[in-house]
Simulated scan of single mutants.
Amino acid sequence: MKNSYLTMLLLLLPYLMTAQDADGCTDHPLISRYPDAQIIWCSAEDFAEYHIATGPVTGYQHIDEWIDLEGKVYRYNYELRNTTNTMNEVYQNYRNALQKAGFEILAEGNDPNRDRMKANEVGGKSWMPVASRRNPLPTTSMSRLNTGSSSSGGYGFAAGKLEKPEGNVFVTVSAYQYRSDIVVIQVDVIEEKPLDDGKITIDPDYLAREIATKGTVTLSGIFFDFDLAIVKPESADALAVIATYLKQNADAHFFVVGHTDYKGNLAYNLNLSKERAAAVVNKLVSDYGIAKEQLEAQGVGPLAPRTTNESDIGREKNRRVELVLGN
């Protein structure tokens, strides 16, 4: 290991905490703030998705190249006020600090003069709002990133990756010259790790609560091979729970609805989603004694996604089977 968290802390100049920091906000132990900057807003999520844009804008509000992550996500919005320091100085300081701390630089670029030729490149005026869209800041953050008048200054962006035995750490830094004496800095730290699932057990009571409050429930634990509509043997435990719930509610009618991601054409996905729903119905009828009249298979393909289809994580969440209460 070339470096440690402490090394990163020492790379930026010491600072004094101010009373103007947002309540409950302190710097991440991995990276200190730019001297005299104050925290306007912060957040921490034990598990969330995060998306790092690493390529230029290639079409209308579109970037082709992304790194999709999931894990602990920490976000800090700073402002450097009443300053003679420029966005470019701030950007270069952070970018160099990442490199000196042993981070692999995944993307970098700055456009201090709002050069039209750089607008769509990493860190450019047009690039920054597109790259930020998949990791939006809440309106409550009061962030001035990507706001301001046409006379506002330039942008800079850097993203780095540090390999660690316990999991990779990613840092992104966005800098923006909001005004001649105000620089906005967004620092995000992502500690990559898979979801610690298995915390929610699917049982008849869980199905009943979801149906009662939402009218629908995702049937977790139903598995298919890629592009096939054959229910895999490891789905047996989930099917048994579903069958118990259906027998407890024998007078109710339900739709079993299949969903896919958006890969492939629409007609194909609509057909695949209905075939998978039908396969679940057939299993419940033939192997678990559920009345055929209680269930109706339908498929909506990619037309009702739960989240984005732009990442592997999102597509996996969109491929699902739901039980929907009928009339």
Score class of each variant (00 low, 15 high):
124 G>I: 06
225 D>H: 11
125 K>V: 05
225 D>T: 03
151 S>W: 06
259 H>L: 00
160 G>R: 13
209 R>G: 04
236 A>H: 11
173 V>N: 04
318 N>A: 09
8 M>Y: 09
96 N>R: 07
218 T>P: 01
290 I>W: 10
74 Y>D: 08
278 A>V: 01
17 M>I: 04
317 K>I: 09
137 L>S: 06
156 G>K: 03
28 H>K: 02
311 S>I: 02
147 T>W: 05
240 A>F: 10
40 I>H: 05
125 K>I: 02
141 S>H: 05
95 R>W: 09
257 V>F: 05
61 Q>A: 12
287 D>A: 14
144 R>C: 07
292 K>M: 02
21 D>T: 02
204 P>L: 03
304 A>E: 11
33 R>W: 09
136 P>F: 08
128 M>F: 00
162 L>V: 11
80 L>T: 05
138 P>Y: 00
20 Q>S: 08
64 D>R: 13
20 Q>T: 02
295 L>K: 12
174 S>C: 01
110 N>L: 02
121 E>A: 11
299 G>H: 08
145 L>D: 01
15 Y>Q: 03
214 K>A: 08
39 I>F: 15
259 H>F: 00
73 V>H: 14
154 G>F: 00
242 I>G: 02
70 E>M: 11
47 F>E: 06
25 C>A: 11
2 K>P: 14
15 Y>H: 10
84 T>D: 05
161 K>T: 00
226 F>T: 07
242 I>S: 00
238 A>K: 10
66 W>V: 00
122 V>E: 06
126 S>K: 05
52 I>D: 04
301 G>A: 11
2 K>M: 06
308 T>W: 06
10 L>A: 14
20 Q>I: 00
58 T>N: 06
73 V>L: 08
51 H>V: 04
71 G>F: 08
51 H>M: 10
208 A>M: 05
221 G>P: 07
66 W>I: 01
264 G>K: 03
233 P>Q: 14
205 D>T: 10
189 V>M: 05
63 I>E: 04
136 P>S: 12
111 D>Y: 07
200 I>R: 01
274 K>L: 07
74 Y>N: 07
183 V>Q: 14
9 L>I: 04
54 T>S: 13
100 K>W: 10
275 E>M: 14
318 N>C: 08
280 V>Q: 08
289 G>Y: 09
241 V>H: 05
240 A>Q: 15
313 I>D: 02
115 D>A: 11
90 V>W: 11
319 R>D: 03
49 E>Y: 09
208 A>N: 15
20 Q>W: 01
122 V>F: 07
53 A>P: 00
208 A>R: 15
92 Q>A: 11
156 G>Q: 05
75 R>S: 15
3 N>L: 04
25 C>L: 07
238 A>H: 12
107 A>C: 09
149 S>C: 04
93 N>C: 11
33 R>N: 10
217 V>R: 02
269 N>Y: 00
283 K>M: 14
183 V>K: 10
2 K>G: 12
18 T>A: 13
217 V>F: 06
287 D>C: 07
156 G>P: 01
288 Y>I: 00
162 L>H: 11
263 K>E: 10
128 M>V: 03
326 G>S: 15
163 E>I: 14
139 T>M: 13
18 T>K: 14
321 V>Y: 06
220 S>D: 12
61 Q>S: 11
301 G>T: 09
59 G>H: 02
322 E>R: 03
